[in-house]
Design a protein around this nucleic acid. Structure first.
Lengths: 366, 366
DNA sequence: AGGATCGTTGACAGCGCTACCAGCAACGAC
DNA sequence: GTCGTTGCTGGTAGCGCTGTCAACGATCCT
């Protein structure tokens, strides 16, 4: 016996086809590949669909076509400003496309990531965006076996699963330290929080730059697994000062920490940059507006998300990009907090960034 | 002639049923309502599913059952810290539930919201979370006609579509101004950016409080439609000072603006709070850590998202909450930037917020 | 002119799951 | 002992769409 369930009441493709005087399959084609129809039928179907207010049933489409139009996005944090910029880039790229985004938060756990990956892959996504290059072997195997395009974002490294877009955190950190060296700083501390893989690589870059200069000392490094915050920046800086009162600069693994250091210096009446120089990472908006303005390493977060999404869509549509690994580079934006030239504190209320000087260009030209 | 398409290769429910020695329909029930099975069959199906690694096909389920397990979430911005906290609350609540989240960004446009709403509703979501109470009449009609639970978040107001969770931005602004009055301030400026409906209501609260005290002057108000930023805070404050050099306090519509004002004061060597007091809105993390620490109105953003999601799930499952409108209130967190008691600038590196004093409690007891 | 090619259209048979109803055994009430 | 009643299980028939193939006329080539 059939079901008595109420017909959803919605317009179906068949109704549209009937009104347009074509077969259902022709109407179906109109929505997927209108070019394939003759102009006459195309307009007939189009007006019929408009007249009836037809909306395709995505579940039926997914079932029949054996694929979804869902893009899975796995990011480690929803709180972090960095990821909200990336996300905005991603969402902007999908706007108006037929794909929809399924977002999940791994909370910086690769096990959680593995779990979510399994979940996503089971639904046969059209594509996948994952953060970073540090997956469990299990995750890696699933990604390798996945039959959809995949983009890894936030950093670049060897052995991409498929496509990859980001920059070298290691090189970026080295460039920041090189900048501090150029300004005459020698005893440079490092503070880092959360210590996720990318922060770890910034630390690695710092360590290598310091070692190259024969200046590395373990006690110059203060890190914690705690999530980052402005307050934490002040606390870590306090620790650093206690360990090594003689430092003349601090490289902060992100801008929130840098802002915390700035406030802590103010509290302690330490002059920036005269007594201590500060360099942050990411170049969030407030860095250009702080007093003194704060030097930071600019990363192209919005572009990273946007480009990743664009590349993914193109790959799904069968147009693979020429180069599957894209280095978006970084720039050290030099500002007052690390400038030995004592730029005067202009009342530059708006337009921060105009007077920025580029110190290093795209990474990874090796 | 049938299709030759490769069978997806995936395990289907029928295979599980066969291995378990039950009918497909019984296996189906196991996944939706295991209680309905006898214990014997339940364990048989369970172990069969585990053995085969069965994963349900959501598209087929959605098609057959005529409903999805997707929750639509419409927010105006992905950049704003405020919404990332709300989102985190929402995602946390859905973690592990069978629902998935479909997020869209209205970019503060009610027309965009209407478009997205139409898109969402067409897919028959299990529930909907929308931001605010200012929808187009068309949107409102669609929401009223929607046959799924709906939660409006971020603020409360008359005529909820269904459920509602938030607080009164009007009352919160009034409380902030009352606090400034209590500290002896009279010439209180207002700066606001973006001027979305909620910021507008904060302005309304400011205006009414000032008028009540006979202190309102139009030139004390500086607003712009530009998206908010720290830099913009400095610029708006500069405008305000130019218009009315005699102000003794500023109420900022959000914390980014407040931070910008702080930096601008530092640039101009204006003493806080002696010459000018500052009050922000939202109580972001950095407010407790700034120098001087910044007074703000704390809003329960994470809880708002989390509670909204929880209420929505319960409503979907047929357990509607007793009260459909929930006021989460706010608190004025008094800090140095508006304290006439001249709290000494302690080196309170971590733990900001411990010394906070609550000034006003949940809103909307009228 | 005949055949090959192209562009366009349609028929058919499912995709994997669940709503509906019916059946059946076990049980208690009368 | 008969008649509900309850609890569990299964059969049937789709949900609305699309992949595959075949057929058709129009166009092109030799």
């Amino acid at each position: 016996m059939g079901r008595k369930r109420t017909k959803s009441g919605k317009i179906r493709l068949a109704e549209v086809a009937e009104l347009a005087g074509v077969s259902p399959i022709t109407a179906s084609r109109f929505f997927r590949n209108p070019e394939a129809l003759s102009v006459a039928k195309r307009t007939r179907v189009e007006s019929a669909a408009n007249e009836l207010g037809y909306v395709p049933n995505l579940a039926a489409r997914a079932l029949a076509s054996q694929r979804t139009e869902v893009i899975g996005v796995l990011i480690p944090s929803l709180t972090n400003n960095v990821f909200s910029d990336v996300l905005r880039g991603i969402y902007d790229a999908y706007e108006g496309s037929r794909y929809s985004i399924q977002l999940s938060n791994t909370r910086y756990s690769i096990l959680q990531e593995e779990r979510l990956l399994r979940l996503f892959l089971a639904q046969k996504p059209a594509g996948l965006i994952v953060t970073g290059i540090d997956q469990t072997t299990e995750s890696r195997a699933m990604l390798d076996a996945a039959d959809c395009p995949i983009v890894q974002i936030m950093e670049i490294g060897p052995n991409p699963v498929d496509m990859m877009i980001g920059f070298s955190h290691y090189d970026a950190a080295r460039a920041a330290i090189a900048h501090l060296f150029a300004q005459g700083h020698r005893k440079i501390g490092f503070i880092g929080a959360r210590m996720d893989p990318r922060v770890q690589r910034r630390l690695d870059g710092y360590v290598s730059a310091m070692k190259d200069a024969g200046l590395f000392e373990q006690r110059l490094v203060v890190t914690t697994a705690t999530p980052t915050s402005v307050t934490l920046g002040g606390a870590l800086f306090t620790d650093l000062l206690a360990r090594e009162p003689g430092i003349d600069a601090v490289f902060c693994a992100n801008d929130d920490l840098a802002l915390g250091v700035l406030f802590e210096c103010r509290r302690r009446e330490i002059a920036i940059p005269e007594q201590i120089a500060i360099v942050g990472f990411n170049d969030l908006e407030f860095m250009a507006s702080a007093v003194p303005t704060l030097t930071s390493v600019r990363t192209n977060r919005y572009e990273m998300g946007n480009k990743a999404a664009t590349m993914l869509i193109e790959a799904i549509d069968g147009r693979r990009p020429e180069q599957s690994v894209l280095d978006l580079g970084f720039k050290v934006i030099e500002r007052q907090s690390s400038s030995s030239r004592h730029q005067d504190s202009r009342p530059a209320v708006s337009g921060g960034g105009a007077q920025n000087k580029m110190v290093a260009l795209p990474s990874g030209h090796d």
